[in-house]
Computed example of a mutant assay.
Amino acid sequence: MRVLIIGGSGFLGTELVRLATAAGHETAATFATTRSDAALQATWHALDVRDPARVARVISDVAAPVVINASSGKSDWAVTADGAVRVAMAASEQGCRLVHVSMRRRVLRLASTTTRHAFRTRSPRTAQRRPLPRRPCDSSCQAPPWHAPH
């Protein structure tokens, strides 16, 4: 299987590239400034996730059915958060499955907080929590635009 690892030269991405190539997957990976020497068997592509056209072009050119986003800009919101959205949208447009991995506790905490607040409705007296759906989304529920129904 062909796999594209966004952020393949980073701490987490380097290990993902190594594991994917060791498992025999045709692996492509991206780097922002310098590529990793850990997995020379991967095909490398320069990518700045702040450039939506370039993100879409790399995902389209590689044509991998699976995209793993392991990019991190540390405290640079344009890379860490907005870049993840650009990758998700481009992967969706190409019909790719997306796996997003992150080691940033702050981003995970923010995502958790955002998710909690997204499932609340405000009433004059109290805030009630709506339960998370227990089934895959179908035509009867509202899914994010990049979510493919199962």
Rank of each mutant, 00 (worst) to 15 (best):
L47H: 09
V101F: 10
V66W: 13
A42N: 03
A38Q: 13
A28G: 03
P136K: 00
S123G: 12
G24C: 01
A148G: 15
V107A: 13
A39M: 06
A46P: 14
R35P: 11
A42W: 08
V79L: 02
T113K: 04
A78L: 07
D37C: 01
S75L: 05
R105L: 09
P131M: 01
V67F: 04
Q94P: 02
V17D: 05
V67A: 03
R2W: 04
D61S: 03
A22K: 10
L16C: 02
P145F: 11
R130F: 11
A53G: 09
P149K: 04
T27E: 01
D138E: 08
H100A: 10
T33L: 05
G73N: 08
A53N: 10
V79A: 03
H150Q: 12
T34Y: 12
V66G: 08
A148C: 14
A23E: 14
L4Y: 05
P133L: 00
T33K: 12
M1P: 15
A23R: 13
A143I: 00
G73W: 06
H117W: 15
A81S: 13
N69E: 08
T21H: 11
A32W: 15
A111T: 08
A39R: 10
D138W: 03
T114V: 07
M89K: 12
D76C: 00
P131E: 14
F31A: 00
